[in-house]
Amino acid sequence: MNVAAPRSGLMRGLYIGYMLAFFFYLAAPLAAAAIFAFNDSQFPALPWKGFTLNWFFGSTEPQIGLFNDRRLMAGLINSLWIGVIVSALSVVIGTCNAFLFERKSFPFKSALYVLMIVPLVIPGVILGISILVFSSMIANGVSDAFWWEWDFLRPGVLLVILGQLSFLVTITTLVISARLRKFDIALEEAALNLGASRVRVLATVTLPYLAPALFSGFVVAFLVSFENFNTTLMLVGSDAPLTITMYDRMVKVGSTPVLNAVSVFLMIGSGLLALASVFAQRPRRGEG
């Protein structure tokens, strides 16, 4: 008998009812967003007018599908490559940070560790405006002093990358540190005693051990980057990523089922990636 469970049958029934209601609450909006992607109607609303895949593949007015909508596809491609760059950078910096905080000792370490976590508790909008303000200051300064126009410091892809990087590094650092902490340092010592060089130990012992965390960190960073809105909104230029394009469409044109198609696409894509990251983190046989 589980001591943590309610004792009476009625209470147990109520508890299970509560859990079901909670999962219904979680699923309802997602289901609503998904279902109308397949409705053969101009509006994402009842009544149901029959099943169609036109909102994904349609190529004729008025049902231009997601994969034939040039603006949405451009947004998707921007999101993809921004996500890959940002995640790669945050995994590299995160790995350095993990080694720095797990392996090295230096003055003010605990204060700097807190500083490393701080970006997680700064609202995204503020990270966005601070990077906007700072880069504009540099751009204005350079323009006043040397008459150079550093357009890459104006809102655009570079600023979006920097803005997302500012808080994603904290996330990847935490993910990678958690695994590095479990690493048995005796393995490295054994390899060193057997005559391997430091670089070789890193490449053949430590990094392979960290690989699942590196992968997971990359996936998590990619997903957060892909779905980020608040920071990106402040920094976006003409090459808007998908979430911004979709928001623009929602506010300016109103909702059409193509936005539901985008939602379905995002749900499937991020669900698969998240599952991949969960499985990569699973302990394998022979590991403690």
Binding site: P29, A45, F226, E227, F229, Y247, S255, S263, M267, A274
Partner: peptide
């Protein structure tokens, strides 16, 4: 649901 964008969730609530 954590991995689905805020935008999609808000859109779902609107619908």
């Amino acid at each position: 649901p954590l991995w689905v964008s805020d935008l999609v969730r808000a859109f779902g609530w609107i619908l």
